[in-house]
Design a protein around this nucleic acid. Structure first.
Lengths: 295, 295
DNA sequence: TTGTAGGCGTTATCAA
DNA sequence: TTGATAACGCCTACAA
């Protein structure tokens, strides 16, 4: 032991893994770089991982190559389990991985019958509209990301929740602002777009997230629009961005951090658990409204 | 090749690495989980890594165990190079790693003679005070993290910049609010602390970062304090938090994303470059003031 | 061109 | 308890 200390000997990691056949690593795979959502999610995984012998690895791939990357990681023994963020649900692929006993946890966009962690996006949008209507708003616009080809992405679910709520509440006004990205500048542009609308809304539900809501708030207030007097604004996520706007943002909380922790727990259940049900378990988190000053 | 495809064969990563003796991985080591600073920094590394054959790995350690972890990673061949964030500068350790030709890039807190990426924190604080004074402020308070034992951490440098600027500008007023953490709530508490001060400042320089500045802004404005009329507020970092406050935050930009890219480039130079100077190169980024509405 | 053998560093097994 | 040996899967070098 003294010699080990003196020579700074540390066991070669690759040699160890090769022999063991297990990596004791889990991997996050996504086609986008760090952003606030991923930060919160990864933070949740990190904290859960911290108390175990596992390592966390992150891989960024080209859009559309996620499935290949997952295969490479799992079959090539780069990690024991994978968290796939917003990956287009390729059922034959998922079947194959399940049959091969390779743990994949789908995040956000989930497929019935396969392990995943998600959020009730339909209900969240539905309740957001109901809440706005309950505060006397009648002309509720929504800003939202691109709808998907499949019609089953989290964006599609939020969209459906919005439409169904309007219908159930007998609100004839609807206005959908579909935006290409989720950044501040796009949020600011929402105001320019809205200004030119002939029929102005009295509420904006930023289903596109807190960052876009913060951008809208900046542009609207410096454009002289009163919030919440002229227009109510509701965000989505309750991320640190939503928490730090100067005018407190009312928002639909998504417990992203807890989702990360749950995702790791689910991966562990698949890797070490006796419970075969884990391979088709979906953990769904409920919406929660955080009321601040913009509604 | 058809058979490879059919059987979903992927080369075993550990076997490959064991033979190669190189991992083609770089590792970020820190004693804290994802936060906005780390997010931006890692994002910079990720984008630089993306175009190479390298992978990025992240390791979170107990505070004080960073050096052990770096040794384990480098000697145990878990990665080819390490980015050490805010690690207490242990010179004998750094000497040893340099002698062993193991690339370590120090981030933020840097040691002369060893590879690192940093920011001119002294100059940044100095210029922030000068800027505030140039706008007619005479009683400038600073909020800042815990000073270090060594007296040479980035916090210490900001502190010195503040004091020297006050001296050079003949401003007798000084008020240092040393805070334990960098979150929103701590920022809000800055307002409560300040309210009870007998001699109220006319400017607050949040050298503790944009997040604390955003928290202060919330508390101050809802407490009825006028910004910038009653008090000027200046942040630090120009992170996404600083960019998304409803009242635009004037702040001292730190190009964290670029620092991440530079750190990876420096690691590459050490790993693949012919230039032995890389092992003692320090890349320092200059400060830049972003003027918005709070000053 | 194709095939075979050895070694990377670890760990598990089996023998002494 | 200790010590030698084989095998994990890859790559490279050398032989056929």
């Amino acid at each position: 032991l003294r010699i080990i200390e003196e020579l700074d000997y540390y066991p070669n990691h690759s040699g160890k893994l090769l022999k063991q056949g297990r990596t004791y690593a889990v991997a996050v795979v996504s086609s986008f770089f760090q952003n606030v959502f991923k930060m919160d999610f990864v933070n949740g995984i990190e904290q859960a991982v911290y108390h175990t012998r596992y390592q966390l690895r992150q891989f960024t791939t080209q859009t559309g190559k996620e499935v290949d990357k997952c295969k490479e990681i799992l079959f090539g023994k780069m990690a024991d389990a994978v968290f796939a963020m917003n990956v287009f649900p390729d059922i034959p692929f998922l079947e194959k991985m399940k049959k091969a006993n390779k743990p994949i946890v789908l995040v956000e966009d989930v497929v019935p019958g396969f392990a995943g962690v998600t959020y009730d996006n339909y209900q969240a949008a539905y309740e957001a509209v109901k809440f706005l209507a309950g505060r006397g708003r009648r002309k509720i616009a929504i800003s939202i990301g691109q709808k998907s080809f499949s019609g089953h992405s989290f964006v599609d679910n939020r969209y459906k929740g919005y439409l169904d709520a309007l219908k159930d509440l007998d609100l004839p006004y609807s206005r959908v602002l579909e935006i290409p990205s989720y950044d501040l500048e796009t949020g600011r542009q929402l105001y320019s777009i809205m200004k030119n609308l002939d029929d102005f809304p009295d509420a904006l539900f930023c289903a596109s997230g807190d960052v876009t809501a913060a951008g809208f708030l900046q542009a609207a207030l410096s454009g002289g629009l009163g919030v919440p007097d002229d227009i109510a604004v509701m965000g989505f996520d309750d991320s640190i961005i939503g928490q730090s706007t100067t005018l407190g943002l009312t928002t639909m909380r998504q417990p992203v951090h807890e989702m990360g922790q749950a995702a790791f727990q689910l991966a562990l259940d698949m890797l070490e658990g006796q419970d075969p049900g884990a391979f088709s378990r979906i953990v769904t988190f409920p919406p929660e409204i955080i009321v601040r000053q913009t509604v």
